[in-house]
Design a protein around this nucleic acid. Structure first.
Lengths: 194, 194
DNA sequence: GTTATGGTAGACAACTTTGTATACTTACGC
DNA sequence: GCGTAAGTATACAAAGTTGTCTACCATAAC
């Protein structure tokens, strides 16, 4: 069997699990539901993953990969800080309003949701969630540093944007404010002018 | 048996459940763990609550009550917008750094965490989580309206503070940034000056 | 063609979950 | 003092959980 086909089932499992975990929560979804939906046999799952925990880890890693890829595609190659801010919040707005199928139907931040269920900061799963947030922050810093030379200014602007981004996601999710990203964009742009 | 004592066990159950649910997640905690920790018999629990679901609802309501009470105590009676902003983020900072025992050891926003596990927007539990966020927002608006007459300005400042507050909680929780509240305070104060 | 690999199907073990039922105990109000 | 109401302790039912095991099938490599 070719390598591509050998990984076929693994990819299908992660896809299905990610979707179900994100939409309903990890503890709420049993292995059997994932198997039923994907049409894959239980033994195949345990052939690819040592445990449910290992599958969850693979899902978190995959979500980080997809999110970063999408995010970088939407927010790279901007020629000014204002343009970066525009792209950033426009991207969030599209995600929140379900115009980005690659990210699944918007259900808040998968990493926050997952950390809430596997909150022990020592766990591997929490560490992966933390790593994603650090990846996002690092990307912000890199992009801002292109058009701003003062490191201190880059860092404080990064903090602002990170906090607004997190706030937008929470507001859109629990408060059901689907315009949150546009409000944050205006605020950030106003801030930039001063 | 007196009314006070009749409610005694109910209060104990909610206290214990709230603590465990908040720290470890709702699905992760079974009824039996709550009973063991509180030292209360199973029949007593089902005497006070129709189901685990009913107990969860009582916990969300109780958390909202406590949080609003604490929040109002910390952020009321301010004589300027800047003072309100100071009090707001100082309060968050104390919570995040575990100086507010009434709120339990900081583990993010209980309502966001709970919504992540009971994400169906039609569920009673989600509605209670949403209601809490609306209560917070309404309180912000009321406080800001004391010192600002322009309604539009009140609303846009409310949006800013709500988003920053949510962002601070997320950053402090998953990103483990315990200084997030102080950063947000500086940003909000800078914003006010312009 | 044979063999090794990976997949399917599904029974099953061991455990955990919520919720009910039974029998006994405590304590307050009248 | 007695009866009612509430609590304790614990067994148990019913369902669901993860993970293992056996038996069989398909296919690609040699």
């Amino acid at each position: 069997m070719s390598v591509a086909k050998a990984n076929d089932k693994r990819v299908q499992l992660v896809n299905t699990a990610l979707q179900l975990f994100y939409q309903q929560g990890i503890h709420a979804i049993g292995i059997n539901e994932i198997l039923a939906k994907s049409g894959i046999a239980k033994k195949t799952l345990y052939n690819h993953f040592a445990s449910k925990e290992a599958l969850i880890q693979a899902c978190v890693i995959e979500r980080d990969k997809r999110f970063m890829q999408w995010f970088k595609a939407r927010c790279s190659n901007t020629s000014s800080t204002a343009e970066f801010v525009e792209h950033l919040f426009n991207a969030l707005h599209d995600w929140i309003n379900n115009r980005e199928t690659i990210l699944e139907k918007f259900d808040g931040c998968f990493f926050v949701n997952t950390a809430a269920e596997y909150g022990d900061t020592g766990s591997e799963i929490y560490q992966l969630c933390l790593q994603h947030k650090l990846n996002i922050k690092q990307f912000f810093q890199q992009q801002l540093a292109i058009n701003i030379s003062d490191t201190k200014q880059v860092n404080s602007l990064t903090d602002l944007l990170v906090q607004l981004k997190e706030g937008v996601i929470n507001c859109a999710y629990v408060m059901d404010d689907k315009e949150a990203a546009l409000k944050a964009k205006q605020l950030a742009l106003t801030f930039l002018k001063h």
